[in-house]
Simulated scan of single mutants.
Amino acid sequence: MRILILGGTAFLSSEIARQAVAAGHPVTCLARGSAAEPPAGVRWVRADRSLGTDSYAEVAGDWDAVIEVARDPVPATEALAALADRAGHWTFVSSCSVYADHSTPDAPEDAQLLEPLPRGTESTPENYGESKAAIEQETLRAAGGKAHLCRAGLIGGPGDGTDRYGYWPARFARDNGPAVVPDIASHTTQVMDVRDLAAWVLSAAEHGVTGALNAVGDQVPFGDYVEESRTAAGYTGEVLRASEDWLAQHGIDYWSGPDSLPLWLPPGYEGFCTRSNQAARSFGLAIRPWQETLADALADERSRGLERHRKAGLAPATEARLAEALLSGL
């Protein structure tokens, strides 16, 4: 396949490019490259997509597959205008954040969506779901029956820049001091290995898979994930389980960001990590054992440094403060 990736320098798009090159496909990446470069073996077209449709002047000709990962509807819509007629297949890596309801377990792809972000409204982290919904709408309008809306959930594995999935094995590997864990053992986690997601994007393009499909991992109880993290890291310290109310009262954030507890979701998100992946599996989505993803994420965390500053998770000083409060009954 002659593949054009609109991106190719960040976590997922870079992995897609690496796998495509390894499979022998001619790959072009259109990206600014301001933070990183695409992997070796691709043709790199340096372009700033904020310049509009002129950004695509150097990617003339027809493409067997175009892969878009944008979160801002403006460049995504301009790319569709410039390229959709010349693409045999169009993949938009969307998100399960487009769904309006995250409280219902095992919801399929026909669940209600958020209202798309209105044209002229700035795309921000706060309206991420609406932005992705708007791009889905534009993709269907321009690419129609050749469009694959790949609705990704939480992505993990080696190279994860969000610091979420790798937090727990890294924490247990860092030291044997008391570890603060939310008391949510029966809650569900659902993570897709970035390598499996990249392989699915390429496979779906090669086989002409279209429509909206949830690209999410299998469901794993949080308690199982934590126990496997402890075992993989060789942790022998004390685990202090804190109730959700207690953590919230002590200023700890859900999900992501500084002084958060990754994979702990707020009320109303009981279905967020229980999306059905059966439709995608029926079209060939393959998912490796989650224990393998966890082990590889830990190896990646060790290579990057267990003491480094993290974008998500408790800072050691914060965890020590919480542990002291738990042990003293405060």
Rank of each mutant, 00 (worst) to 15 (best):
276 S>T: 12
79 A>W: 04
265 L>R: 06
197 L>C: 10
295 A>Y: 05
231 T>N: 03
192 M>D: 00
247 L>A: 10
171 R>G: 06
102 H>D: 14
236 T>I: 08
294 L>S: 03
219 Q>F: 06
328 S>F: 05
314 L>A: 07
315 A>R: 12
277 N>E: 03
197 L>Q: 02
140 L>R: 03
129 G>L: 05
155 I>G: 00
41 G>A: 07
330 L>W: 13
269 Y>D: 07
103 S>A: 15
84 A>P: 11
218 D>T: 10
329 G>P: 15
64 D>C: 05
19 Q>P: 11
314 L>N: 10
57 A>P: 03
61 G>E: 07
324 E>D: 13
111 A>E: 06
120 G>F: 10
329 G>A: 09
315 A>W: 15
63 W>C: 04
308 R>S: 02
231 T>S: 09
22 A>P: 06
171 R>V: 09
72 D>K: 02
315 A>Q: 12
304 R>W: 06
178 P>R: 03
98 V>T: 05
248 A>W: 12
13 S>P: 13
101 D>V: 05
223 G>L: 05
293 T>A: 01
29 C>F: 11
281 R>G: 02
305 G>P: 04
280 A>C: 12
278 Q>D: 10
85 D>C: 02
31 A>L: 11
54 D>P: 00
221 P>Q: 00
42 V>K: 07
212 A>R: 13
136 E>I: 03
138 E>F: 12
155 I>N: 00
300 D>C: 07
276 S>Y: 11
52 G>T: 06
119 R>S: 09
126 E>A: 14
286 A>F: 08
19 Q>M: 06
134 A>F: 15
258 P>C: 04
244 E>F: 02
162 T>R: 04
312 A>I: 12
117 L>M: 07
160 D>K: 08
197 L>M: 09
246 W>N: 09
115 E>I: 08
